[in-house]
C-alpha cells in the first residue's frame, strides 16, 4: 500500500513535469520584463543568504519623456543605493564617493537580464512553468530557469499573476540546496509616479565618470574552458587592491557572462609556487583562489565550486602563435621568474 501510493505520487508528478509548458514559462518571463520596464511600482524585499536577511526598497516609475526612474536602497547598515534616471546609473556606497556611469543595466540583487532580452538565456537554460502557489498573499506562477548543464545554478521565480512582477526568487544548486532567496514583502503598483520618484526626478545625480577601457592589450593568459554560453564581456589589466593593504597587485582580468551570471577571472604571477585552493561563498557567489605553478588564479561568480575549480585549472598561457611548443616554452620561462 505504501509503495503503490508512493509510485502513484511519483508518476503523477512526472506526468505534470513532462507537460510543463516551456512556452508559457517564456511568456511569463517576457511579461516580467515588460512589467519591470513599464510599471510604476514600489516594493520592499528581503535578500536571505548566509543566514542573514538584508531588506531593500525598490522603486520604479516612468517619469517625464518616458524616462525610467529607479531606486534601490539597502535599508540595514551603511547606505548602499543604486539610483537610475534613464541611462545614468549612480552608485552610492560607503567605500567611495558617489559616482554615476552611463549604463543600460543596474547592479542590484535583481538580475539585470530580467529587464533585458530573456531569450538570450535560452542557450544555457531551460524555462519551465511549474504551477501556481500563493506568495505574498497573491496568486503566483512558478517559473524555473534551469541550467542545461551541471555547471550552473537554477533559478526559481514566482511571478505575480496580476501584475507579472517578481514576488519571490530562489537560487538553488542542482541537488536542490537553497543558496539564496529574495522574498518580496510588499508590492504596490500605481497609476501615477509616487512622491519619492517625483522628487527623485528633480534630483541631480553625481557626476558621470568616464570609464577608460584598455582594449587591444593582449593578455598573456587565456581561459581554455568555460561552461557553454559564457562569452567575454571584457578583459583588462588593473590593480587589485587588497583590503587596506599597501601591496596592490596587477592582475589580468576577464569578465564572462552567460546572460544571467557573471564570472570574473583574475590571473597574476605569484612569488609563491603553490597554494592550496581556497574558497568561500557569499550566498550563491563563489570566490575561489589558488596558486598553481606560480600562477595565482582567482574566480568569482555565481557558479558551483566545481565549475570555478574547472575554470581555474583551465588557465593557460595565451596562444598567440599557432605553434603550441612556443606556448609551452613560454610557460616554462614564466615559472622561472
Amino acid at each position: 500500500m505504501k509503495l503503490s501510493a508512493f509510485l502513484l505520487l511519483l508518476l503523477s508528478f512526472n506526468v505534470s513535469a513532462i507537460t510543463a509548458d516551456t512556452e508559457s514559462a517564456k511568456l511569463s518571463l517576457e511579461r516580467l520584463t515588460n512589467s519591470l520596464r513599464q510599471l510604476n511600482f514600489s516594493t520592499s524585499f528581503v535578500v536571505v543568504k548566509n543566514n542573514q536577511a538584508e531588506p531593500y526598497h525598490w522603486l520604479h516609475g516612468i517619469g517625464e519623456n518616458e524616462q525610467e526612474l529607479e531606486i534601490f536602497t539597502r535599508l540595514n547598515g551603511p547606505r548602499r543605493d543604486v539610483l537610475r534616471q534613464g541611462d545614468i546609473v549612480s552608485y552610492i556606497e560607503p567605500e567611495q564617493e558617489p559616482y554615476s556611469i552611463i549604463s543600460s543595466d543596474v547592479r542590484s540583487p535583481i538580475p539585470t537580464i530580467f529587464r533585458g532580452n530573456i531569450s538570450e538565456l535560452e542557450e544555457s537554460y531551460r524555462f519551465i512553468s511549474v504551477g501556481r502557489s500563493r506568495i505574498l498573499g497573491r496568486v503566483a506562477q512558478l517559473v524555473r530557469i534551469v541550467s542545461k548543464d551541471k555547471y550552473r545554478f537554477s533559478y526559481w521565480l514566482w511571478l505575480d499573476q496580476k501584475t507579472g512582477l517578481l514576488l519571490k526568487m530562489a537560487v538553488l544548486t542542482r541537488q536542490g540546496q537553497l543558496l539564496e532567496q529574495i522574498q518580496f514583502t510588499h508590492i504596490e503598483v500605481n497609476e501615477q509616479l509616487t512622491d519619492n520618484l517625483e522628487q527623485f526626478q528633480l534630483t541631480e545625480l553625481p557626476e558621470v565618470v568616464e570609464v577608460t577601457q584598455q582594449y587591444n592589450k593582449a593578455l598573456s593568459w587565456q581561459v581554455d574552458w568555460l561552461p557553454q554560453g559564457f562569452t567575454v564581456v571584457k578583459s583588462n589589466q588593473h590593480k587589485l587592491n587588497s583590503h587596506n593593504q599597501d601591496d596592490e597587485k596587477a592582475v589580468e582580468f576577464m569578465l564572462f557572462s552567460d546572460g544571467l551570471v557573471e564570472v570574473s577571472v583574475y590571473v597574476n604571477l605569484s612569488q609563491e609556487k603553490f597554494r592550496a585552493p581556497e574558497y568561500a561563498s557569499d550566498g550563491a557567489t563563489m570566490v575561489y583562489n589558488h596558486i598553481l605553478q606560480g600562477i595565482e588564479v582567482g574566480i568569482v561568480g555565481d557558479i558551483p565550486l566545481a565549475t570555478a575549480k574547472k575554470i581555474a585549472e583551465s588557465i593557460a598561457p595565451a596562444v598567440i602563435d599557432n605553434v603550441k611548443d612556443n606556448a609551452l616554452h613560454s610557460k616554462g620561462e614564466q615559472q622561472d621568474d
Binding site: 567605500e95 587589485l240 587592491n241 587588497s242 583590503h243 593593504q245 582580468f253 557573471e262 570574473s264 583574475y266 581556497e278 574558497y279 568561500a280 557569499d282 557567489t285 570566490v287 583562489n289 582567482g298 568569482v300 561568480g301
Partner: peptide, 10 residues
C-alpha cells in the same frame, strides 16, 4: 582579505 578583495573587485 584575498577572497574579499576578489569579491569586491568582481
Amino acid at each position: 582579505r584575498r577572497l574579499q578583495a576578489l569579491l569586491k573587485d568582481h
